[in-house]
Simulated assay, not measured.
Amino acid sequence: MWVLAALIAIAVGIFSTPDWRAAWLGVGLGGCLIAGFAVQLWSGRAAGFTERVAASVLGAALVMGVISLGFGLAALVPG
């Protein structure tokens, strides 16, 4: 799940304009949430479902945040 979040964040950072980057990251995080639900439902285990989904979405948010921080810092560098 976290690899998917990293790929989405990198794609958003490359292909979106800086004005729309935060909005597209929110859409990407929503996609990670849906993918997290799908993966956890597919596993078929009921015990700890909420905790596993929450951990995957929190991890995805952290990964996307770190990558977007990198793009934000790169935008500050003149060149």
Rank of each mutant, 00 (worst) to 15 (best):
G13L: 01
G13F: 00
G13H: 01
G13W: 01
I14D: 04
I14C: 01
I14V: 10
I14F: 04
I14W: 04
F15T: 08
S16V: 06
S16G: 07
T17W: 04
T17K: 07
T17L: 02
P18W: 03
P18H: 03
P18F: 02
P18N: 07
D19K: 08
W20R: 15
W20A: 15
R21G: 00
R21C: 01
R21S: 05
A22P: 07
A23E: 09
W24F: 14
W24R: 08
W24N: 11
L25K: 07
L25S: 15
G26Q: 12
G26W: 11
G26R: 12
V27C: 13
G28L: 10
G28S: 14
G30C: 13
G31N: 14
G31P: 13
G31I: 11
C32S: 14
C32I: 13
C32W: 03
L33K: 05
L33Y: 07
L33P: 06
I34H: 02
I34V: 10
I34W: 04
A35V: 03
F37V: 03
F37K: 01
F37D: 01
A38D: 06
V39D: 10
V39Q: 15
V39G: 11
Q40H: 11
Q40C: 08
Q40R: 13
Q40I: 11
L41R: 12
W42R: 13
W42K: 12
S43Y: 15
S43T: 13
S43M: 15
G44P: 02
G44F: 05
R45W: 03
R45N: 06
A46M: 08
A46V: 12
A47V: 15
G48N: 13
F49L: 12
F49D: 01
T50C: 14
T50D: 15
T50A: 13
E51V: 12
E51R: 14
R52W: 05
R52N: 09
V53D: 09
V53E: 09
V53Q: 10
V53N: 06
V53G: 12
A54P: 11
A54N: 07
A54G: 14
A55R: 09
A55E: 09
S56R: 06
S56C: 12
V57A: 05
V57E: 04
V57G: 05
L58N: 05
L58R: 05
L58F: 08
L58M: 13
G59C: 06
G59A: 08
A60M: 04
A61W: 08
A61E: 03
L62G: 00
L62Q: 05
L62V: 11
L62C: 03
L62H: 01
M64I: 08
V66A: 03
V66H: 01
I67N: 00
I67T: 00
I67E: 01
I67V: 03
S68Q: 04
S68F: 02
S68R: 08
S68I: 03
S68A: 06
L69F: 03
L69E: 01
L69Q: 00
G70I: 02
F71C: 02
